[in-house]
């Protein structure tokens, strides 16, 4: 049986890319990254995802931390 495509997550500020074999929701992603609901923007295809939104196999997600550093 073919494996589902992994989810790619770009951490914008850190300049790192993470690959997850599977993620269910934006909330699960935030938990994996140990981030709160309003700590970052979760972006997919030019849209912001609220924590309850489903993440599909093969999705490319960008995480933009919102705390400014001067």
């Amino acid at each position: 049986m073919p494996q589902p495509s992994p989810v790619t997550v770009v951490l914008e500020r850190e300049g790192r890319t993470l690959v997850y074999p599977r993620l269910t929701t934006a909330h699960q992603l935030l938990n994996r990254l140990e981030l709160g609901v309003n700590d970052c923007l979760v972006i997919r295809d030019g849209e912001l995802l609220t924590p309850d939104r489903k993440i599909r196999p093969g999705d490319a997600i960008t995480v933009r931390t919102v705390v400014s550093r001067g």
Binding site: R13, N38, D39, I43, L48, R64, V66, V67, G70
Partner: peptide
């Protein structure tokens, strides 16, 4: 307005911001 709210506003308004920290 929180930092998250201004970040969301900037994103949704298509503002091209300077992101590199000092």
């Amino acid at each position: 307005l929180s930092e998250y709210e201004t970040a969301a506003y900037a994103f949704l308004s298509g503002i091209d911001i300077h992101v590199a920290p000092c």
